[in-house]
Design a binder for these strands. Structure first.
Lengths: 219, 219
DNA sequence: TGTCTTCTCCAAAGATCTATGGAATAGTGG
DNA sequence: CCACTATTCCATAGATCTTTGGAGAAGACA
């Protein structure tokens, strides 16, 4: 093997990793798995994809060693292979944010109008510290269980309307979910605002919070 | 457009960026561009690819906004669109290093036997500080010019054998090049060692050094 | 304007990827 | 061992990507 071929083969290893992330459905799976391990069926249900398609794409991720599996009886749980994979995924977001002009409008089409006020990490931490804010995690309960921000209470989005009374009426609420491209917090803010609450949306999800080296409960 | 479609279209934006990096030849181009801007012809010459192939792949990178161009007369210079692209590339390396079992052997096939002793950032900085080491940049002169480590002298690899006398014979030499997957420093260490010099190879290239927030000259 | 240089566009053949229905497999519990 | 569940494997048609030769375009310069 000459050097030219050897170089190509070396770069091919890097390319394979990138290519494994070069597909919208697989990225959607990575996005979900970044919140904790999931079975194939659960992934199909939450993502809305065909089961066989989910399985095929998980195989592709596994061939690239980006996910690992654990068997429990007849069910197989997938998870990200490590924190570096989540970091790569976040860095991909950052690049796309500056490189992809249509991203903003695609995000708006998915998340709804950009009418929910954001709050940043630092302000949130100050406000949490002096107790003037209630932090609300609107992801499904399992995701909360597998890691959440310190001080957050869990009310999954689909129960939010029924459990409003668990949120103190006189303090501001800050909602968060999987990250800046997750609908849940956007929707939650709209629901709460319509009920007259003072509410903002945290710009981060757990992943971004962790990447900023801030503490996470039960990771 | 329903939410499912909107979500797919959102994730497609991320996927397009990943896909642009999902090809060995394009990664090779990114690798070169990470060292400074280059014309299409130069890229073809240094990478050994067909000119048309280089152009086509540069177009692909440009469609994804990962590179930017500048025209100078009849020549067009390409460069990375920003530091976040280099960071993504580095993070891709990190993931591949743990996810790709064959990477190590592919690297060895390209770089030669793993017989050159490495030195880390921290030790190098100490040794530079007390002046007990000569730092040698063996990349082409233009790359040195567009950014190099503080205190480094430039002797491009292809001139090394003829310019040995520029290196003090009695101090240890530390050679570096584009990064851990670049041949130049590996080859340079072998050349110098064969001439009886005490020489090690810096594990980093300029990119990694910069990513660690260490100062770079003329960036 | 004509010619030279440098690069991009076009076309096409070959390779690879993608989604999905249906069959096969592995574990579980009667 | 049989039925059942969760997942993977297989086959395939359609889509997308890749490389490269040859033609075209844009600037430089006489």
């Amino acid at each position: 093997m000459d050097r030219r071929e050897a170089k190509e083969s070396l770069f091919d290893h890097f390319a394979h990793v990138a290519r494994a992330l070069g597909n919208a459905k697989r990225l959607e799976l990575v996005d979900l798995l970044a919140q904790g391990e999931r079975s194939v069926e659960t992934l199909a249900a939450t993502s809305g994809m065909n089961l066989t398609t989910v399985s095929a794409n998980l195989q592709a991720l596994r061939r690239a060693n980006l996910v690992a599996t654990r068997r429990e009886g007849t069910r197989i749980f997938y998870r990200l292979a490590g924190p570096h994979v989540a970091n790569l995924y976040l860095q991909l977001h950052r690049v796309a944010e500056t490189a992809s002009p249509g991203l903003r409008s695609a995000a708006e089409a998915f998340l709804g109008p950009d009418d929910t006020e954001e709050i940043g990490r630092d302000e949130l931490r100050r406000r949490l510290h002096d107790g003037s804010v209630t932090l609300l995690d609107v992801r499904p309960a399992e995701e909360y269980a597998s890691g959440h921000l310190p001080g957050a209470v869990s009310i999954p989005y689909d129960q939010l309307a029924d459990r409003l009374d668990e949120l103190p009426a006189d303090t501001e609420v800050v909602a968060y979910c999987r990250g800046p491209y997750c609908v849940l917090a956007h929707d939650a803010v709209r629901v709460l605002r319509d009920r007259g609450r003072v509410v903002r949306r945290l710009a981060d999800g757990v992943l971004e919070w962790e990447a900023a080296r801030l503490p996470v409960v039960n990771p």
